[in-house]
Simulated scan of single mutants.
Amino acid sequence: MRHPFEPARLLLGLLMLGAAVVALVQAHGGWDVPAWAPAAMVPAGVLLVGVLGGVARLVRRAVRARRGSGDQD
């Protein structure tokens, strides 16, 4: 059974992996990142993912409505 593609979940996973990589590199002293940067990345990423999820839902709803209206003609 196939599951629907959810771009918001993909983006959230990539953003969280990116934040983890930044934290690991900073912990090993390889990169000097201000303390506020990772703290700002996570909420900004979550907001972006929320917008993307809403857009994906609207697109799915429009596609579903178009398929439904085409079947009735």
Rank of each mutant, 00 (worst) to 15 (best):
M1T: 13
M1C: 15
M1W: 11
R2W: 07
H3Y: 15
H3S: 10
P4M: 07
F5K: 03
F5L: 10
F5V: 14
F5E: 05
F5T: 08
E6T: 13
E6A: 11
R9T: 08
R9L: 15
R9F: 15
R9A: 14
L11I: 14
L12P: 02
L12E: 11
G13R: 11
G13H: 09
L14I: 13
L15V: 09
L15Y: 02
L15D: 01
L15K: 03
L15R: 03
M16E: 04
M16T: 09
M16I: 14
M16V: 14
M16P: 01
L17M: 15
L17N: 05
L17A: 15
G18S: 14
G18I: 04
A19M: 04
A19W: 00
A19V: 15
A20D: 11
A20F: 12
A20P: 01
V21I: 14
V21Q: 04
V21N: 01
V21W: 15
V22A: 00
A23F: 06
A23K: 00
A23C: 07
L24G: 07
L24D: 01
L24F: 12
V25H: 00
Q26W: 03
Q26N: 09
A27C: 05
A27L: 12
A27Q: 11
H28L: 13
H28A: 11
G29V: 13
G29M: 08
G30R: 04
G30Y: 08
G30H: 06
G30I: 08
G30S: 10
W31H: 12
W31C: 05
W31D: 03
W31M: 08
D32G: 06
D32T: 15
D32N: 11
V33T: 13
V33M: 08
V33H: 01
V33Y: 04
P34L: 08
W36C: 01
W36S: 05
A37M: 12
A37P: 00
A39V: 09
A39W: 14
A40W: 15
M41C: 04
M41S: 05
M41Q: 04
M41H: 08
V42Y: 02
V42T: 07
V42K: 02
P43K: 03
P43E: 10
P43G: 03
P43Y: 09
P43M: 03
A44M: 14
A44F: 13
G45L: 01
G45H: 00
G45M: 00
V46E: 06
L47R: 07
L48V: 12
V49G: 01
V49N: 02
G50C: 14
V51G: 06
V51I: 12
V51M: 08
V51S: 02
L52C: 13
G54E: 10
G54W: 15
G54P: 03
V55H: 02
A56E: 05
A56N: 05
R57W: 10
L58D: 04
L58G: 02
L58T: 06
R61Q: 11
R61K: 10
R61A: 09
R61M: 06
A62I: 06
V63T: 11
V63M: 04
R64L: 09
R64F: 11
A65C: 07
A65M: 04
R66G: 05
R66L: 08
R66C: 03
R67K: 09
R67D: 10
R67Q: 13
S69H: 12
S69C: 08
D71L: 14
D71P: 01
D73K: 04
D73P: 06
D73E: 11
